[in-house]
Every structure is written in C-alpha cells, then in structure tokens.
C-alpha cells in the first residue's frame, strides 16, 4: 500500500498518524511533507525509525523548490512525478493522508 503525505511533520499530524496506524508499505512525501525527508529538523529521528518498517520516497521537484536538495536524508529515495506514477501503479491501493 502507498501512503501519500503532503503536510510538514512539524505543523500537522498526517505523517505521525500514518506512521502510527499503517502497518507497513511505502510512503511518498510530497508538497510540504518533503520537509520530513530532510536532516536537521525535530522530526528526523522519527523518520529514521520509520525506515525500518516503510520504504520512504520524496518528490524531488518539491524538495528542490524548497531549497533542500542538499539535505535529503540518506535512505530516502528522491523521485520525480514519473516515479510518483510508478509508485501508484506498483501498489494495489493508495491513501492520501489529507
């Protein structure tokens, strides 16, 4: 299952809820959620912990737009919109944690 998150983990609880409830699968961070894919912030530890249970992706155009291309945590896979499409295709279902 693919979980799509679009909120910063520091201002909302979408990603936190997803990590609590989802039992595994893949997580794609888009829009403001890409902040969760970067190092040095207060959520980094949780993302690193989550990597054991989930494969984590982040949308590169959103990372670049926010000036954080040099801060992506190792182990997070940066993908383009084409990669986003591939993830949706590869997973049987998807949920946007709005």
């Amino acid at each position: 299952m693919l979980h799509i998150i679009n909120k910063s983990p520091l201002s909302g609880n979408s990603l936190g809820s997803c990590l609590n409830v989802a039992t595994g699968g893949e997580i794609l961070l888009i829009e403001d959620a890409v902040y969760a894919a970067t190092s040095g912030n207060a959520f980094e530890k949780k993302i690193r912990e989550a990597m054991g249970r989930f494969k984590i992706y982040a949308l590169l155009p959103d990372i670049e737009a926010r000036g954080l291309a040099d801060r992506v945590i190792e182990g997070v896979s940066a993908v383009g919109y084409d990669g986003f499409v591939d993830l949706v295709v590869a997973n049987r279902n998807c949920q946007s944690w709005l």
Binding site: I30, E31, D32, Y81
Partner: peptide, 26 residues
C-alpha cells in the same frame, strides 16, 4: 482534486501527476 487553484499546491501536483502518467502511456 479537493483544493482551488493558486491557494494550495494540490491542483498543481494533480496536474503534474496526470501529465507524467500520460507521458508514460497511462
């Protein structure tokens, strides 16, 4: 698409997703 244009990125993200999907033959 649940949000209006210009106010929120949702419409842009949706459009770029659609474009990429079509380019990939979907």
């Amino acid at each position: 698409v649940n949000e209006g244009p210009y106010q929120h990125q949702a419409s842009d993200s949706a459009y770029l997703f659609c474009k990429a999907a079509i380019e990939k033959g979907h």
